[in-house]
């Protein structure tokens, strides 16, 4: 399921694809048992970094994909044909984050981990 948000809810988006509509594990508001906490701690040590990389790689691919399909939205004349319009409806919620991701000035300290 894709959370369909549009308009000013700028930043959700890519996230929705990525998470498949699952709720954020926003644990700061959630009470968790000791067992869960230990499990989380181990997950954090062992896998969080790897999972993050996997997702980050995914983000780059998403961005590339959007760039190729909707590049002229940014004034890059890739001249995508007819079919990018077909894909447009699905991309709508992602557009803002995508733009932010592409245009955010980053320096290498942003790209390290």
């Amino acid at each position: 399921m894709i959370i369909r948000v549009i308009g000013n809810i700028a930043i959700y988006p890519c996230g929705d694809y990525l998470m498949n509509g699952k709720e954020n594990p926003d644990a700061s508001k959630e009470r968790r048992g000791a067992k869960e906490t230990v499990k989380d701690f181990f997950y954090g040590m062992a896998m969080q970094g790897m999972a993050r990389y996997a997702l980050k790689t995914r983000m780059y691919l998403e961005q590339l994909f959007m760039l190729i399909t909707l590049g002229d939205m940014l004034g890059i004349p890739i001249l995508p044909p007819y079919y990018s319009l077909k894909l447009l409806p699905y991309a709508v919620p992602n557009i803002k984050t995508w733009k932010r991701g592409l245009f955010k000035e980053r320096d290498f300290t942003d790209a390290l981990f």
Partner: peptide, 11 residues
């Protein structure tokens, strides 16, 4: 964005 920025539990 689900990747770089992503609220994660403290543990």
């Amino acid at each position: 964005d689900g990747i770089e920025f992503f609220p994660t539990s403290k543990s």
